[in-house]
Design a protein around this nucleic acid. Structure first.
Lengths: 149, 149
DNA sequence: GTATAATAGTATGTATGCTTACTATATATC
DNA sequence: GATATATAGTAAGCATACATACTATTATAC
């Protein structure tokens, strides 16, 4: 009679809590290091570090966010003097982005810290379990991508 | 030289995207079913279904949210007429919550839909892989819990 | 070449999710 | 029983995240 629905088994609930854990670790380590950067902001800086001169839509695509969110994130990064934004000469709708030197410096400082904290997120798992988790996550996402795109 | 930092391997990034996928599926299925309920709201209703007469702090704890967020969620659920909220006689700081009959009805309608969509989130995985994923997620979260609480 | 569709970005609004600070109440200490 | 401490909830504020509708510009169709 008791069709108990347990949140603890639901992938959706587990994933949300993992995301919570991950975000929390990110914030703590950033604060500790004296960095004023969120995880989205890091993702944006990182993407621009490897692919300079992309526009906002491309950036949004690379790090899997929608245009509206990226617009706000970019605004804040420009305000902080970490990226530059200018109208693309060839397509006046688009705004091309690139890191400022301050942005490049910050990114260089952030990278080792972020790499280190990635390991913390799944620190309860063995190295092998960690790899399995990453593979399964990638597999789940790959299908979702092909369904959409 | 090229210390390429790939987001695609980072647990944090993968987890965020899984959460995105999960939320997106939830929203699509709710919309399809004509339900105006978010995943947090469902979690709250579900928790109150199995444990009536808890206060907001307990609810927050059960579904792993902070008090401030739950306060807003509860406000919206009350506005929708799905839960009732009254001051606890024994502790006038606390507000005890319970489902209204509309809330109970909605929850009963939602449960099969939510159960079904949970399966969609990891639909790229085999049954065995699904179980492994859930186990690893639980393991990762268990340690995090014991670190905090 | 003009009407149409597609695309880049912005604006607006809703809902999380969190922190910090605050009020009200309850508990513990002395 | 006054005082310090802890707890429940709210308030304010920041930063996502997303949908939808809008403007500006470009590409396409005819």
């Amino acid at each position: 009679m008791n069709d108990q629905i347990s949140l603890e088994i639901m992938p959706g609930h587990l994933i949300r809590r993992l995301n919570q854990l991950s975000t929390s670790i990110f914030q703590i380590r950033m604060k500790e290091g004296g960095f004023d950067v969120t995880s989205v902001q890091f993702a944006a800086l990182s993407a621009l570090g490897s692919q300079p001169q992309i526009d906002q839509a491309t950036l949004a695509n690379m790090i899997a966010y929608d245009r509206a969110t990226i617009g706000d994130v970019v605004k804040r990064l420009v305000q902080k003097g970490l990226i530059e934004r200018r109208v693309d000469r060839e397509d006046r709708r688009a705004r091309k982005l690139c890191l400022t030197s301050a942005g490049k410096d910050l990114l260089a400082d952030l990278e080792p810290v972020v790499l280190a904290l990635q390991g913390e997120i799944l620190s309860a798992l063995s190295e092998q379990e960690h790899d399995v988790f990453v593979q399964l996550a990638q597999k789940a996402l790959l299908k979702a991508e092909s369904d959409t795109g």
